[in-house]
C-alpha cells in the first residue's frame, strides 16, 4: 500500500476576520406574486339552486360550493381530472348524455341535476361494475358509496374463478371465449411482491389512472408505469410487466399516496394486515418535517403502538402537494433500527 501523504501544503489561512456588518438592512415592502388575472363569475343552477362561481371552475366545485355531495373515485385535488370513473356524472339540461362533474367547466345558464333517476342509475351501475369486478375490501370510500346508492354487485353472478382472469393474454377473444354468463369476470390475480417497500395488488385496481399520473408528468416524471392492454384487459403495467426492480421505478411511493383502493400498499401495512395486526383505528397521525434534505417536506407519520407504520404527506401542502421521495416515504426505519439505545 502506498504510503499516506500528508495533506498538501497549499492550505489557505482560515478565520481571516471579515468585517462585521454595521447597520442592519431595512426591510423592503412585503413581496407578493404578480396579481392573477381577474376571473368573471359564472351563474348556473344546480338542483334548482342558483350558484355563482368563478369562471373556469368545474361543476364539481360548483356542487361543493352548494354543499351537494358528489361521489368521486378517480378525482384528486392535486391531479388533473381524467374523468374515467364516471361516478361523478350529473345531468346537464340540453346534453344528450350525462357529463362528468369533475372536469366539466361551468358555463353561464347551465341547468344541472345531481340527484335525478338517471344520475342515480349511472352512479349505482358504475359502483356495481367496480365492486363486481374488483376486490374493494380495502376501499372504504367506494364501499360507502355503494351502500349509499344501493348497489348490489352480486347480482351479476358469482366471481369468475381466478384461472379465468389470470394475467391477460394477447389473444383476441371472440364468440367462443370462455365467458358463458355463469360467472362475472373479475380482475383477480396474485399480489405482486417484488421489493421490500411496497406491494401491488391489481385485483384491487379500479384503473383510476392516478398512479400513472403521479408517476408521470403530474408529479414524479419517472414514467415507470403506464396503462397497457385494452378494454377489460387494461391494466397498470411496467414494460412487459417486468418486476419493479427491473423497471424505471424510483420508489417515491407517490402512486401509493394517490391510490384510492389499497391496490398499492406499503409493504409494512400489507404485512401487518396479513398478520392481522393492522389497527387503523388505533393509529395516530402526526405532521412533521422530513429528516433528510433541506426542501422541508411535510411528513404525516402514521403511528401504531409507538411504531411508524407508514408515511404520507398532505395533499394541500404547498411544498409537497402530497408527493415525497424514497427517503421521506420509506427511510424512517432507522428510528427503530439497531444502533439506537434500548
Amino acid at each position: 500500500m502506498e504510503k499516506k501523504k500528508p495533506a498538501i501544503q497549499e492550505r489557505l489561512p482560515f478565520n481571516e476576520p471579515a468585517p462585521c456588518p454595521t447597520v442592519p438592512v431595512p426591510p423592503g415592502p412585503i413581496p407578493a406574486p404578480p396579481p392573477a388575472a381577474p376571473r368573471d363569475q359564472v351563474t348556473l343552477t344546480v338542483d334548482d339552486k342558483t350558484v355563482r362561481v368563478p369562471e373556469g371552475s368545474t361543476l364539481l366545485e360548483a356542487c361543493r360550493t352548494l354543499g351537494i355531495d358528489t361521489p368521486t373515485l378517480c378525482y384528486l385535488e392535486n391531479l388533473n381530472p381524467v374523468n374515467v370513473c364516471r361516478v361523478c356524472v350529473v345531468e346537464l339540461e340540453g346534453s344528450r348524455t350525462l357529463v362528468p362533474a369533475c372536469s366539466r367547466r361551468v358555463e353561464n345558464g347551465m341547468v344541472i341535476r345531481t340527484d335525478s333517476e338517471r344520475v342515480r342509475l349511472s352512479r349505482r351501475m358504475v359502483l356495481e361494475f367496480l365492486a363486481s369486478s374488483v376486490n374493494v375490501s380495502t376501499a372504504p370510500e367506494l364501499q360507502a358509496y355503494l351502500e349509499q346508492y344501493g348497489g348490489q354487485p352480486e347480482r351479476f353472478g358469482p366471481a369468475a374463478p381466478p384461472e379465468a382472469a389470470e394475467e391477460p393474454g394477447t389473444e383476441r377473444p371472440a364468440v367462443d371465449c370462455p365467458t358463458d354468463g355463469r360467472t362475472a369476470a373479475t380482475v383477480a390475480q396474485p399480489v405482486k411482491i417484488d421489493n421490500d417497500l411496497y406491494i401491488r395488488d391489481y385485483s384491487k385496481c379500479i384503473l383510476c389512472y392516478k398512479c400513472v399520473q403521479a408517476c408521470g408528468e403530474e408529479a414524479q416524471n419517472t414514467f415507470a408505469i403506464a396503462v397497457a392492454g385494452r378494454g377489460f384487459d387494461s391494466r397498470i403495467s411496467t414494460e412487459y410487466s417486468v418486476p419493479l426492480p427491473d423497471s424505471a421505478c424510483v420508489y417515491c411511493g407517490n402512486c401509493i399516496g394517490v391510490c384510492p383502493t389499497g391496490a398499492l400498499m406499503f409493504k409494512s401495512e400489507y404485512d401487518m394486515r396479513e398478520a392481522g395486526t393492522w389497527k387503523e383505528s388505533d393509529q395516530e397521525r402526526t405532521d412533521t418535517i422530513c429528516p433528510y434534505c433541506g426542501v422541508g417536506c411535510t411528513l404525516t407519520l402514521h403511528v401504531q403502538e409507538n411504531q411508524i407504520v407508514k408515511v404520507t404527506s398532505p395533499l394541500d401542502q404547498e411544498v409537497t402537494r402530497g408527493h415525497l421521495c424514497i427517503k421521506g416515504r420509506f427511510g424512517w426505519q432507522f428510528v427503530r433500527g439497531k444502533g439506537r439505545k434500548k
Binding site: 421489493n195 419493479l244 420508489y251 429528516p291 427517503k327 427511510g331
Partner: peptide
C-alpha cells in the same frame, strides 16, 4: 440513517 431501510 438510510442504511436501515431496504432500498431496491
Amino acid at each position: 440513517q438510510t442504511s436501515s431501510y431496504s432500498s431496491p
